[in-house]
Design a protein around this nucleic acid. Structure first.
Lengths: 253, 253
DNA sequence: TGCAACAAAATGTCAGACGTTTAAATGTAT
DNA sequence: ATACATTTAAACGTCTGACATTTTGTTGCA
């Protein structure tokens, strides 16, 4: 694991890679303590700042944690579901935002994945999950809600649906799809009628979950997907038209 | 964005967080150049090594890239699907490996997500995707294959199925679920009969995809899920029994 | 025995320096 | 004036050495 080709570039990246490989391969188990920075710098024949940069890279991925003081040091971190959630959400959000992913594509992926949870959630959801869904649906029906708060509640609703499946791996995977959509959803201005329609569909979903009818959950999700897409389409079309108008206005001057 | 509380801990983490927020919020767009390390260290009132540690954290998440030389520096990186794949796979693999996730839980999540792609892939797959699935199924039927190679081919097969849906967001999300299962699958020793059964189910899936019958794909996936679970169960049971035997042997001495 | 002071180990941070890479600016020759 | 070679400067990559801070363990005293 001490292998370090002498030349090409970025020693800290090479060192981080070597340690990461050791962790993934299981050579370094959870809570194992890495050698101190001074020892690492000696082993790898590099300076301490270089070692530190490598360790920071690993810390950024939650692969290690550091502890100060005597008998402190860097320890292999147990990657918690929460850390993984957050990383996944950040990555997914940036991926959608930076690659010109269309609303339809993201929407399709999100609802396809959510339907994957439908029958499991219908079968296993606890009373808590159902209650959360009901609470969020009520919140969404309140008139004074800002668009951002509406979207946040939407995420919470779907989160409860997904968590109802009782499979943390599924929840983790879905977190990226559901939460990463929020910036795209926030671009939409919802009219009162839009919201009412969405709340109706949410209530249908909750009803189906309450009845433990996976098929109905799936169908309601599909209806919501279709409605969301048409809604987005009309909003974007209106916006494009407005932009066109602005251009025309400018040209007319 | 220059805000930096004076005290608590880990300046480099705070700086990395501030820059990351600026990127996620869109204040720093793709390919924008960050100030030089010297300028950043002046702005944040910290030393250059500290700034560098912060930048390495961001580089570890593929949020920035650095370029040497005049007019070089740190630039906001366009997060590619490939970078995101790899990060997601690493995170997912560690998450499963470190948290005692049961085989059944991971398996359930994987197949639930894969079924989410079934109808889309049946409808949209190209001839290439189908051909890849056929090739991998043939490869899996060859006798001399090692268990690792068999599992790798399994991943390639399912990868083609998922990619057939033609939705890169879906492919990205699924990559974590499918590839992260491989270490768990590698723990299973497949008999010739096991493999034959799996190849049969893979062929059924390919047939259904060829016929563009999403329902049949979904059903075959479910059959494969059930078979995989029973297979794993028997393998683990046999292994537990063997361990028990060893203990008994030792006790008998 | 119990508590306080001290020592040691480790990370966190800083300052300054040198090497290397790269692109732009400059200069020279055709 | 253009083309090419040279110089220059900006920036990152790395190193050395030092100090600050935090935490733990141990010693010493009451």
């Amino acid at each position: 694991m001490k292998i370090d080709p002498n030349n090409p570039a970025d020693l800290s990246a090479q060192i981080a890679g070597a340690i990461r490989d050791a962790i993934v391969a299981g050579d370094l188990i959870v809570d194992a303590r890495l050698p101190s920075e001074a020892e690492l710098s000696e082993n790898f024949k590099v300076s301490r700042p270089t070692v530190r940069e490598a360790l920071k890279r690993l810390a950024a991925q939650s692969l290690i944690r550091t502890q100060r003081g005597a008998f402190g040091g860097a320890f292999v971190n147990r990657l918690s579901f929460e850390d993984a959630y957050n990383q996944h959400i950040t990555t997914s959000t940036l991926l959608l935002g930076m690659n010109g992913v269309s609303f339809d594509t993201a929407c399709e992926a999100r609802f396809a994945l959510e339907r994957a949870c439908a029958s499991l959630s219908a079968a296993r959801r606890s009373a808590d999950h159902l209650a959360t869904m009901r609470v969020e649906a009520v919140r969404q029906a309140q008139p004074g809600l800002s668009d951002e708060a509406f979207c946040a509640s939407d995420v919470a609703f779907h989160r409860a649906l997904v968590d109802g499946a009782g499979n943390p791996v599924l929840s983790y995977q879905l977190a990226g799809a559901v939460e990463a959509m929020q910036p795209l959803m926030n671009m939409i201005t919802f009219t009162a009628r839009n919201r009412a329609q969405i709340v109706t569909l949410h209530s249908q979903i909750a009803d189906a979950v309450e009845a433990r009818d996976g098929g109905a959950v799936s169908a309601a999700l599909t209806a919501l997907e279709v409605y969301t897409k048409t809604l987005a389409q009309s909003v974007f079309a209106a916006r494009a038209l407005a932009a066109e108008g602005t251009v025309t206005d400018k040209a007319a001057r």
